[in-house]
C-alpha cells in the first residue's frame, strides 16, 4: 500500500472554545482510570470491610518504639525491620485530638458537606489516626467509638468512621 491510497481521517472530538479574547482558551476534557495498590497494607483495608481495625507493631527487641502504628506501616521507620499485624480489641474507643469542619471540599468529595473530620488518639498507638465523625459535634478530649462500613463497603479509608461514645 502506498501512502497515497488511504486518507487519514480525524476521528476526535473538536475542542470547545471557552474564550477567544484576549487569547484563545480551549477545553481539554479527559476521563482516566488509575490502578492503585494497597500493597502490604492490603490486610488493613480488607479488615475495615470486615469490621476489624488492624495496626502494626515493631517486634524487634532492640527497637525503641513499642507503640502500635495507625495508619499501619509494613516496615518500622526506626529500625527498618518488618512489623507484625495486631487487631485492636472492640469496642475501639479513642479521644479527639483535634478536628475540623469541612464546608468547601474539592472535586470528587464522597461525603455530604459540611462534616467533621477528626484526628483520634487511641490507647497504645504511637501515632494519631484521621477519620470523620458520622454525627455529633466534636471537641478536643471527646470520646469516640469506631464503626465500620461492612455493607456497601467503599474499599477505601472511608470504610471506618467514628461516632460519639457515651460509655
Amino acid at each position: 500500500m502506498t501512502a497515497g491510497e488511504k486518507i487519514t481521517k480525524y476521528i476526535g472530538k473538536p475542542a470547545k472554545v471557552l474564550q477567544s479574547e484576549p487569547a484563545k482558551v480551549i477545553e481539554w476534557p479527559r476521563s482516566l482510570i488509575h490502578r492503585h495498590t494497597y500493597g502490604k497494607l492490603s490486610p488493613f483495608f480488607t479488615g475495615l470491610t470486615e469490621g476489624r481495625l488492624l495496626a502494626t507493631r515493631c517486634v524487634n527487641p532492640e527497637c525503641g518504639e513499642d507503640g502500635l502504628w495507625l495508619p499501619p506501616r509494613a516496615d518500622c521507620p526506626d529500625c527498618n525491620q518488618p512489623m507484625t499485624w495486631e487487631e485492636l480489641p472492640q469496642p475501639i474507643v479513642g479521644t479527639v485530638h483535634t478536628y475540623a469542619r469541612v464546608e468547601y471540599a474539592g472535586t470528587g468529595i464522597e461525603m455530604t458537606t459540611p462534616y467533621f473530620q477528626i484526628d483520634v488518639e487511641l490507647p497504645g498507638v504511637c501515632t494519631i489516626f484521621k477519620g470523620y465523625l458520622q454525627y455529633g459535634t466534636p471537641e478536643i478530649g471527646m470520646r469516640v467509638k469506631a464503626c465500620f462500613r461492612t455493607e456497601d463497603s467503599t474499599n477505601t479509608i472511608l470504610d471506618i468512621y467514628w461516632i460519639p461514645y457515651e460509655g
Binding site: 494497597y38 483535634t98 475540623a100 469541612v102 468547601y104 471540599a105 473530620q117
Partner: peptide, 23 residues
C-alpha cells in the same frame, strides 16, 4: 496529602490545616 489515608477525607488543603488551627 496521603492518598490512602487522608486525601479522600477532604480533597482540599485547608482541611489539613484546620485541625492544626484548632489544636
Amino acid at each position: 496529602a496521603c492518598k490512602d489515608f487522608e486525601t479522600r477525607l477532604s480533597r482540599i488543603y485547608a482541611a489539613y490545616y484546620a485541625p492544626m488551627a484548632v489544636r
